[in-house]
Design a protein around this nucleic acid. Sequence first.
DNA 1: GCATTACGCTACGACTCGTAGCGAAAGCAC
DNA 2: GTGCTTTCGCTACGAGTCGTAGCGTAATGC
Lengths: 206, 206
Amino acid sequence: MQRRNPASRTGRPRSAAADTAILAATRQALVDLGWSGLTLSDVAVRAGVAKTTLYRRWAGKNELVVDAVAELFDELTLPDRGSLAADIEGVVLQFAAILARPEARSGLMAVVAEATRDEALRERVRASIVERQKRLVVAGRARAQERGELPPESDAARSARAVDLIFDMVAGSVVHRTLVSNQPADEEWVHALTRVLLSGLAAGTR
Amino acid sequence: MQRRNPASRTGRPRSAAADTAILAATRQALVDLGWSGLTLSDVAVRAGVAKTTLYRRWAGKNELVVDAVAELFDELTLPDRGSLAADIEGVVLQFAAILARPEARSGLMAVVAEATRDEALRERVRASIVERQKRLVVAGRARAQERGELPPESDAARSARAVDLIFDMVAGSVVHRTLVSNQPADEEWVHALTRVLLSGLAAGTR
DNA sequence: GCATTACGCTACGACTCGTAGCGAAAGCAC
DNA sequence: GTGCTTTCGCTACGAGTCGTAGCGTAATGC
């Protein structure tokens, strides 16, 4: 617990290999057992570590799964496809591909559900998962402004609200399509989504 | 189990009062304990019935919570506010009000998460919850066509895809705003959402 | 009355949880 | 090398939950 000191280096260091093994084992357990079937004892066996090691690093199942799922979103990038519409479609397709994986499907909604009653967990989800996605919206918006596809932001607060709205619309639509409606967010669907979104935003800024 | 017969009436009938008491107790348990803290034993005590009665009527926690949450969406109606934009805003505000309630917040995402690994549960969620929301989109669209705000549907398949897209965008955005971003879907936000959505759709049908 | 089904209650084995305790291992300072 | 410190693996534990079985009782249709 006392890792507070900036360079508190004495004693046996924690195994970094164990961390990656545990997170990978957690994702595999999500695939095999789902959220409700996942137990920390099982993850420990899969990862080849003792159960007590898990409890020394994570407070419980919620925190562990958040970290395990968050890593899935590391691969999200903002490819430069030449236009705002193409950029959005590219990112959304990446996002949809992640949400198509069973470890994301089982884990993501579960931690969001748990976070509704746990302030600390909600903050962890926000910092580890949501922000990781949101920065792409900010970056895409900035790039579109450089290209002249969007007007430069005048009011900071107004701009922040616009980013929030876009983010909730994009992420929410894809999540709902994938996990609730249970249908693939394929290229055709993503194209239609992007068209509605960009037309609406263009009309709004007029 | 043998309720197959259309009017298989022999023996003591099931208490309808128990059903409503159990579902109400389930929602209250979601408020007090959240999804992970909810146990069927606890619900039974709250409802004043025996635990075995619960197991006679529902296969498990998942199915019970789906039914309990589904009832929350019964109050959704499509008020005639005079224009498509106003109608949408009215429904979305109702939807947001439901999602602001803790029993919906805790329960809805949890059952969606569980449904990712349970085909039967997914179908139950679709029939009990999703369809209940989706019919409002269909009805609102039909009313807008009567008003002349939207062109009459030419291709059935094309129309179905449009309804699906709109539904995922509306429901997904509100859910994401409320449960993930954890910010209120108030009138201002709903108004901005509706504006983007309708502008985008109008541009698309041109 | 009789048959049938639902109900309340108790008890049960199986399982999971999170923690405590202990000896061994792996680093750092000297 | 010798200590010091922290992590690790392992075992064991009480507490709590799960879902079911068994049994006597209550409520309906015939």
